[in-house]
Design a protein around this nucleic acid. Sequence first.
DNA 1: ATCGAATGGATAACTATTCTCAATAAGAAG
DNA 2: CTTCTTATTGAGAATAGTTATCCATTCGAT
Lengths: 153, 153
Amino acid sequence: MTTMYQQQTVAIDRVEQMVSRLKKSDHRITPQRLAIFKILANSVGHPSAEAIHGALLDNHPTMSLATVYKTLTLLKQEGEVLELQFSDLGNRYDGNKPYPHPHVICTGCGTIVDPSLLDLDDITKKMMNETGFKIVAHRLDFYGICPECQKNG
Amino acid sequence: MTTMYQQQTVAIDRVEQMVSRLKKSDHRITPQRLAIFKILANSVGHPSAEAIHGALLDNHPTMSLATVYKTLTLLKQEGEVLELQFSDLGNRYDGNKPYPHPHVICTGCGTIVDPSLLDLDDITKKMMNETGFKIVAHRLDFYGICPECQKNG
DNA sequence: ATCGAATGGATAACTATTCTCAATAAGAAG
DNA sequence: CTTCTTATTGAGAATAGTTATCCATTCGAT
């Protein structure tokens, strides 16, 4: 109960965050964009653009896949969604935690899980010292077989 | 001098490694494959399939891009090359260190650098305990602006 | 209400990668 | 060294995810 309620609260906050961020950068809040925000804020997995589009078709039958992509591009620009690039799975999107964080990916079924956060600040600083790069983001992915696939395999 | 010599030695070892691995799995060693092995073993960067193909055209004018992709797929299967998936940059390949390791990627020009190795074994174990996954690989990427782009930007 | 700019939808275009298949060549056997 | 079997090559077609284009629509400030 409490968990559900908090989950919902968090999701609403995320939508509000996206809305205010886009307003601040002089973009319009359209019904289509709002619908995409809600999907992103409520999805626990890491949906693809096509999955987002599919989930929207029930209530928005005319929603175009192009609109989904355009909105995702916009959210990326504003730092309100994290894009995970996979050339085999297709790109996946995380609207709940738009900041860099670790992922655990099943090489059997493509499930993507968020483990508890890991502090990489120290390592990031070392990387900057060693390479001279000005590091602004990171990506840490672990690949393996999820419990479900271990059973079925 | 010593550095050059050792570099060369390492590269030759890598080619030999790839050859023996493919022989062991009953694959033929063709001139095309050997040429691709050499490129991979000698490249310090992280070339794309197209870059590898381009580098081969001098000595192998009829080399097909499909052959490059097929050979990369084979080397991936045998664990002799590491594929870094980027949907924007295109995939990149590391034939020198085919095991998971950190990368530092310039978001300006796409340069990819290998910092000194970082031990992630402890973290990997924690991930397995927390998620129940059987983790077999990982990927750690830092994104930032390289020194060259900092000068020009 | 009107005007100009931003947005949405449909579809074409693009690009990296994979697939197809006839011709070729690697490697084993004699 | 020659032959045979079969994996591999090369060229181009096919595929899939993403981006670009175009025009109609909508938003929102005046």
